[in-house]
Structures are given as C-alpha cells and as structure tokens.
Nucleic acid binder design. Sequence first.
DNA 1: ACCTGAACACCGTTCAAGT
DNA 2: ACCTGAACACCGTTCAAGT
Lengths: 220, 220
Amino acid sequence: MPSSSSQPQRTGRPARISRAEILAAANSVIDAEGVAKLTMRRLATELGCTPMALYHHVRDKEDLLRLLLNEYADQVAWPDLPEEPRERVRVAARAMHDVLAARPWIVEILTADDLLGVSALWVSESIVDGFVAGGLPLDRAAQAYRVIWHYTAGDLIVRARSARRAAEDRPTFRAQVFADLDADSFPRLAALGSDYLSLAAQDTYDLGLAALIDGLLRSA
Amino acid sequence: MPSSSSQPQRTGRPARISRAEILAAANSVIDAEGVAKLTMRRLATELGCTPMALYHHVRDKEDLLRLLLNEYADQVAWPDLPEEPRERVRVAARAMHDVLAARPWIVEILTADDLLGVSALWVSESIVDGFVAGGLPLDRAAQAYRVIWHYTAGDLIVRARSARRAAEDRPTFRAQVFADLDADSFPRLAALGSDYLSLAAQDTYDLGLAALIDGLLRSA
DNA sequence: ACCTGAACACCGTTCAAGT
DNA sequence: ACCTGAACACCGTTCAAGT
C-alpha cells in the first residue's frame, strides 16, 4: 500500500489505478446508485481492473469506506458560530445534520464508530462548549451532546430509509394501515388520516432540535 | 403457502417443517448470534432441510423478518398510562424504547417501514394523544410524535451498533482519537478525556426524552 | 402439497503466480 | 510494485423434478 507520493521516483511497475481514482469511482457509484450497490467487484469493472487490484490500494472494503468518509470530512467547511450558547448549539447541530444529510450513507458507518474523522470533533467540541456556556456542568454537557447526536442520527436514518423505500414502488405498509384504521381504538390517528403521511414527510429536525436544547438547558 | 389450519384434513404430503418451527429457529439464531447471521441457508441447516424448503413456508427473507416482527409485536403487553399528559407521553415512549431495546435488530427493519405491525399503533396513538392533551394542535402533536420516534430510533441504533462494535475487539477509532487530542483546538473534549467514553456508554434516553417532551410542550 | 438438487447470479477475500 | 486468475467460502433465489 503506497503512502503519499513524496518520493520523486519509485521503483517497480507503474500503477495503472491510483487510490484517488478508486475513491472517485466509488463516490460516483454511490451517488448514482446508492451505497448498497458499491461492491468491490462492481468498482473493479468500473475501473477496468480485476477486483483484486483494488486490494493493492485499500486494505479491505471497510477501509475503503473509511477513506471515503475522511475525504468528505476533510473538505467540509464548518460555519462560524454565534456567541449565544443556545444558538451556538443549534447552529453546530444543524451543520452536522446538513453535512450528513448530503451523504446519508455516512451515517450508517458513523453509528458503528460515531466519529466523522478528526475533523468532525469540531461538532462535538462546539456543542459541548455551548452547553457548558449555557450553564451545564461538563459531564452533563457531554451527555447532552450524546442526546443531540442520537436525535440527529435517528432523524437522518429514518428519513434516508423511508426515502429509499419510497423510491422502490411497492406500496408502503404504513399507507395501507392508515387506509383502514379503527377509529374507536385509535381516534387521534384516525382523525389525522392520510394527513399523517404528509406530516411525516415534513422536516421536523428544527422543531425537535429547538425543543431538545431548551429542555436540556432548563436544569441549568 | 398454507393459510392457518382451519381445515381439519388436507391432502398431499405431510409437512416436515412448519412456519412456526421456522420462526422459532430464526429467533434462536438471532438471539444467539445476531440478525446478521440469520441466512436462509443457515436456517435450513439448523432445521435439517434444504434452503429451498423454507420458501414453501415464507415468501422470501424479507417476509420472514416481517413475520418475526409481527409475532413479537403481538405478544407485547403495553403498560397502562397515567392521566397527566407529560407523563403519558413519557411512559408510552419509554415503553416503545424498552420493547425495541429487547430486540435491537427490529429497529433496523422498522426504520425502513416504521410500523411495528398494527399492534404498535398503540404507541403512536398514545403519544399523539398525550401531546394533544398537553395542549398541542393535532398536526403539531403528530410532528412531535415523529420527533420522539427519531430520537428513540437514533438512541437504539447508535447504542446497538456501538455495543456490537465493542463486542468485536479491534480497538475503536474513538478511543484512539481521545488518547491524543489537541487540547488547544478541543479544550472541552480534552478536559473530558477518557471520561467521555464512560459517559457515552451511560443511558441518556430518559434525560433526552424529558427534555424533548418539555421543549415540545413549551409552545402549548 | 411438500421437498430436493442443481443451477444462476451474486458477494468479500486469500493465495500463488505473472511482469 | 503492481496486477491477474483461479479458487474458497459464502449469499438469496429460480426452476424442474421427485414423492
């Protein structure tokens, strides 16, 4: 596995495919068809090489995904944060949400090891700092950050998956259930009727985020 | 595919494996080794039949998972709810959380089609009703439920996956990052140090839930 | 009606060999 | 050093045939 090319000359056979090319091809497969379609074999045909050629540039598939993630993380420009604690947390959390919403598959990896490379420590630091500035003790602020992260991850995962589900066109079980709902057992849901489906599609991240920050800072 | 056996006599060859046996075997594989290990082939060897025999009792693997989910949902005993709106939402949400925490793999399916069978409408109904009783208009109450669901799903998924990750023993990337952290760039995180890891492991669901309910009902 | 056997179209990855 | 070819140990599922 070659390191970054600081050496002007290297011995041996010249490389036909580079790590950068692999990452670029992987990104384009993911963008076009989703992360589920990214396989080593598919990537190989895309690059015109054998599957095994890839293993000379990345350790394994997990390594490839981590490289993709870091490459993306490094190019993110995080926003400036306002002074006011509540707002600071809100803007930092929203930035995390938006950065991840642009590459939903990343959340699936993050939830396993929840760290968007070192670059993303910016988010944790900012949110913890905002909560401390808002009056929480440090350990409480850290827990508050975890709560924000769980909420953000849940929002992104649920939305990403129901979007994928909607893209396939077999009818959703949910729509079917709401069609014939027992109004005696479930009066509220029956009253909502099919409006529930459009309400569920709306962006509720800000609503929950504001509530969460308010509630978490209340004890301060 | 046979329906439920209301017919006293049926013609043809007697069945060697039943749908109930398949579901039982599937559950025991999942409990012992996780849902990732549940494959049609593995299930077949467990039952002493060929993989294809299973397809006579379930449509496909997704159908099998849905059957497992519904079987579990039907056996859940939901708690009685208190009158006070805030408490009603809290108890219902906590019940949803606990029911799913006992079978974490279910969340992975739910997030695709977010409905725990018809039985689980109890949760949505209770939470929406609690928010309405707390003073929110119906559409707002429905959005508030969605927020609670996203938070709950995120908590469960993040915890389930980091638990799985911890079970494998390759060192987590997170621990490594916290070991050598730049105290100038990330003062709060550096101050937390390795305490962050134990804080992250703690159960923060109630903390966030209470904050969320408070915040969501504030506008009422 | 219920089940088997062989096959198809996939996976990620190892290992020995080629240039 | 970089890549290929063949192979291993898996997947879910279809299809034709057996009892």
